[in-house]
Write a protein that binds this DNA or RNA. Sequence first.
DNA 1: TGCTAACCGGGGCGAGCGTTCCGTATCGTT
DNA 2: AACGATACGGAACGCTCGCCCCGGTTAGCA
Lengths: 191, 191
Amino acid sequence: MTERPLRADARRNRDKVLAAAREAFAESGFGVPLDDIAARAGVGPGTVYRHFPTKEALFEAVSLVRVRDLAADARARAASDDPGAAFDGFLERLAGEATAKRDIPDALDGVGAATVAARTDMQDALDVLLRRAQEAGAVRPDVRVTDLFALMKGLIHAIRGSDDPGLAGRMLAVVRDGLRGPNDPGDPPFD
Amino acid sequence: MTERPLRADARRNRDKVLAAAREAFAESGFGVPLDDIAARAGVGPGTVYRHFPTKEALFEAVSLVRVRDLAADARARAASDDPGAAFDGFLERLAGEATAKRDIPDALDGVGAATVAARTDMQDALDVLLRRAQEAGAVRPDVRVTDLFALMKGLIHAIRGSDDPGLAGRMLAVVRDGLRGPNDPGDPPFD
DNA sequence: TGCTAACCGGGGCGAGCGTTCCGTATCGTT
DNA sequence: AACGATACGGAACGCTCGCCCCGGTTAGCA
């Protein structure tokens, strides 16, 4: 099963396609015509299909990197001494990406085997990050990882496609405060 | 400008098409093929186009109702004696719809003239609802209508497409608490 | 009941897009 | 330098889907 190394030009084109796909998907989401990606890479559509069997496969190759990056980031922050700040930092990073990467929602919803595995891995990392923040009293205890995941998707959508530069920060503040817990003294906590 | 009344069968078919479109869009979003809508209405595609010049126009006719309903609801609640509870009620209603109506995000992003007008109208109503809740101390004062609108979209996306029946309630709790304001880290809300 | 205008159905056209195919160009090796 | 293997480009195919058209049907009125 060992694969022979790619020819030099093939490897070069493969990289160009991946780079073009990364940009194109980020700008326009999964919907970009594959021909546009090929054109942006300075390559014919056929060449794209030589390297990736389908458009979905290409998208997966791109979004896999995104999800894995997030997972790695979450894992790194989970090791921090200040769990609350680490949690905040991750959310901030996410909010920052939401403005620029239109394909993040699609990546987070991916159904391919590799993407699902990466997502599970990310959720494991998030679980640690969340639990530590909760133990430190920085996040309300009745929130589950799945809730956090859903909130992340919501946050991304709330921010996406707005030209208001301050919106991301304000959305983040609301979600962050909501995750901290109820404010009204007369109101019992959720659980 | 006075239009003659439609023939009885025409009016009947028009209503069937609208009802079918309402269901189909709610189930699958704007993406449903128009032929599916026609089939669901028990009608040929040509009949759909007799009543609505374009698929977008049909979608607008449907989403206009949705947005207007929301606007009317917001306006009604804005007149309540208990601004905080009224605000909560509106958010709850929205969360309830999010699970069932897949087309709400598309409706909220619509670009047609009528939809834009309806959206502006809804924002006016929301503005009153929000301002009164803020004056009552139930919502933090630094939130703008546009923020609320973005949060609504995020909330819908966070809830959508999950089979967890409790998720909506938990998402709502987080967003609601976040809108109330920052929580004092020095006084944990539980125990 | 019969006439006419309005309306219906569904086959079909054209555009967009994912995917494939094949003749040609390029690489790497002998 | 020459040859075989590999990769390239882009034209073409098939499918989906929005939209139009025309032969047949039906509603409303006298």
